[in-house]
Design a protein around this nucleic acid. Structure first.
Lengths: 198, 198
DNA sequence: GTCTATAGATCGATAGAC
DNA sequence: GTCTATCGATCTATAGAC
């Protein structure tokens, strides 16, 4: 009987899936209880602030994941062309090739936007800024990099919307493929060739 | 006292704004009552099926607007290049240059997706198909037109997500500008010019 | 730390007066 | 046609046993 989840961080992925599937309002505590296998008592033990704190924690974990696996990689990469490709792969995997929606994007279109506006803002602006930084390091002008970065984020988000609406994950895969093909080609030390990866 | 709205169709735009602002779950009947100035009795008189019928009717009106002002224009245009520009203008105006979200896209990312899946599917696939048809009439190959159409719809949707999250309508305007600039150039009878609209 | 029971508010929907 | 009153269900959050 005595379930030993014992770690708040163990609950977060389950919470995230519940919010992704039902939205903030749609994810009732009864539903969250089912998804996590925890009773109300346990949930309020881990998240005294209730549902709002649950969603906030989930957003925090998402931001942390992107910071580690996407943003930081783009900002600190020695070879930005490779970092761009690598983070696109990670992004495709994260969204399960279009079968998983972006919770941050979904929140942005719902009335929970105001409640978490700071998180949403930070997530998208950091993403855009990290891409912009890497793209400018590949030789794009500041204006090109800014536009290009914005277009990448926007394409991925739009692809997730469309993939969901049309129930066709392929839309997301195709969109990521186009983003990939429009990336600046890697310049390697041995000049003159048209190499792919070092 | 005796309010004389008397037309179901007069209520639809107010309903649409309520759903856009609060989402399906978030738009309670109390809120809808405020937004429309109608009591529960009147609302259930117009929409015996309750909230679901209200949302369904709103989706229907949205589809009808796009069918008239976008899809049909694209399918029946004599000069597809001009039709593409014209419908992009109409689209920009419809979404208030990025200050208004797409209710269909928002529903697609929420858990109401399943409830209205047919409407969502139809809306996006008709939009995509109409664009594809017009683009192929401009001389794009079937493959090019299919990809291009998908990318336009997806860019607009993604731009609306990003514009909302970052509270920056300019993102949508810029995205529409890029879509416009990538359209096939209009071939006119008086050749050599760079005409805008007929 | 986890549970059940339940309070208090709000939900969608209905009934019936006018 | 429009209103108010109200039902039963469901919601978030809390209390208290174990």
């Amino acid at each position: 009987m005595a379930r030993t989840v014992s770690e708040r961080s163990d609950v977060l992925p389950l919470l995230a899936e519940a919010f992704r599937e039902h939205g903030y309002e749609g994810a009732s505590l009864a539903l969250i209880g089912e998804a996590t296998g925890l009773g109300r008592g346990s949930l309020y033990h881990f998240f005294p602030g209730g549902k709002e704190e649950m969603a906030s924690a989930v957003l925090g974990e998402i931001e942390a994941w992107f910071e580690t696996n996407i943003f930081r990689v783009l900002r600190t990469a020695e070879h930005p062309e490779n970092a761009l490709l690598q983070t696109l792969d990670a992004t495709e995997e994260y969204f399960r090739s279009g079968r998983r929606i972006c919770l941050v994007g979904a929140f942005a279109l719902s009335d929970t936007r105001d409640r978490f506006s700071l998180s949403l803002r930070r997530y998208f602006s950091e993403w855009r800024a990290a891409l912009e930084f890497a793209l400018s390091k590949t030789g794009e002008t500041p204006a090109e990099a800014a536009t290009h970065a914005e277009e990448i984020v926007l394409s991925l988000q739009g692809a997730l919307v469309l993939a969901r609406a049309l129930d066709d994950p392929g839309i997301f895969s195709r969109a990521i493929g186009r983003v990939r093909s429009r990336l600046p080609k890697a310049r390697t030390k041995r000049r003159g060739g048209a190499p792919r990866l070092p």
